[in-house]
């Protein structure tokens, strides 16, 4: 009884509890119920009759480019010795990345200067791509595809109702004459084309920097004369496999994390419309940052390793 009175007299605690209860109750009300998540693995073409390459992933990639360039322009135009708030933030990030690059590739080394634009661009691009997918409206605003080609926008952006369907589902829906919503935007990180492209760039540039630093000697890492160094030849073969598998690990790690994160958010929104997704939002923010950092750091580490001669052991 005393406990109840104490609870009621604490207005903040009381209001918070009432708010939580109201939101949970609202989550059960059918009107607020999020639709079941339809998960589409591939980026979809935006226009039903348009070109297949014009996907929501591509559109969002351009949007990401625009955002990054605008942020850069805002920071750099009217650049001052005594920086404003935004210039300060951007400088802090660039300098932080520069220091990180130097700490791995060597302080003041030519390698640092060579690797820096690649790795920082990976970081920025991946980070913005990861975060842009968390904006309300991503997945919920889109174009309805059907035979009738009805255009509409889904309301209730905070429900993040990602729609669309798998290939089979699209066909089924089209047969039923039900319009299918194709989201206007899709996080580029949740589009395998982007992650695979970055992975290919990362692995290709690793070989490039390796050859630049060591010449043709670089390839002795993979190919050794099996008659002179049998064990080395086997190890080299494994190295080759590992190098190729990097493409897959790079691309699917990023894609998997971000795509799965979006699916988790959708599922949580479907289970409990309010409150529960908020918790996973925080988690997704964290994952988005970590994945950008991981992609960047691994690329940087591979670049650095490729420029070091492996003949030293022999």
């Amino acid at each position: 009884m005393n406990l109840l009175r104490a609870f009621l007299s604490n207005s903040r605690l009381r209001n918070a509890t009432i708010g939580i209860i109201v939101l949970l109750v609202m989550s059960v009300v059918p009107f607020f119920k999020a639709p079941p998540p339809h998960v589409e693995l591939a980026a979809e073409a935006l226009l039903e009759d348009g070109p297949k390459w014009f996907t929501n992933g591509l559109l969002t990639t351009l949007l990401v480019d625009l955002i990054i360039i605008l942020m850069a322009v805002f920071a750099v135009s009217r650049m001052k010795e005594v920086p404003g708030a935004w210039q300060n933030i951007v400088e802090m990030m660039v300098e932080g990345m520069w220091n990180l690059t130097q700490s791995i590739a060597g302080h003041g080394s030519a390698n640092s200067r060579k690797f820096f634009p690649w790795v920082i661009t990976i970081f920025i691009f991946v980070l913005v791509s990861n975060y842009i997918g968390l904006l309300p409206g991503f997945g919920s605003i889109g174009i309805y595809h059907s035979g009738a080609e009805s255009h509409a926008q889904a309301e209730l952006g905070n429900q993040l109702a990602m729609t669309g369907a798998e290939g089979v589902a699209v066909a089924a829906a089209a047969e039923e004459g039900k319009p299918v919503l194709v989201p206007l935007f899709r996080s580029p990180s949740a589009d395998l084309n982007m992650t695979l492209a970055l992975a290919l760039i990362s692995v290709f540039m690793t070989q490039f920097f390796g050859v630049q630093a060591l010449g043709m000697r670089y390839f002795t890492k993979y190919f050794k004369n099996p008659f002179k160094d049998g064990m080395g030849a086997v190890v080299g073969f494994f190295e080759l496999i590992a190098e190729i598998s990097k493409i897959i690990s790079f691309s699917f790690r990023l894609f998997g994390n971000i795509f799965a994160g979006e699916v988790v958010l959708l599922v949580m929104a479907f289970l409990v419309t309010f409150l529960l997704p908020s918790i996973f939002y925080g988690l997704e923010l964290f994952i988005g940052f970590i994945q950008a950092l991981v992609f960047m750091l691994l690329t940087l580490a591979f670049f650095t390793m490729a420029t070091v001669s492996h003949d030293d052991h022999h």
């Binding site: 990054i68 400088e91 661009t121 695979l196 492209a197």
Partner: peptide, 25 residues
């Protein structure tokens, strides 16, 4: 799409190199 993403990244890198990294550093 793969090619477009690769080119996109290359362009973005070149633009940012001129626009952001060099001036800021």
């Amino acid at each position: 799409l793969l090619l477009s993403q690769i080119i996109n990244f290359g362009l973005l890198m070149v633009i940012l190199q001129q626009l952001l990294y060099k001036p800021v550093l």
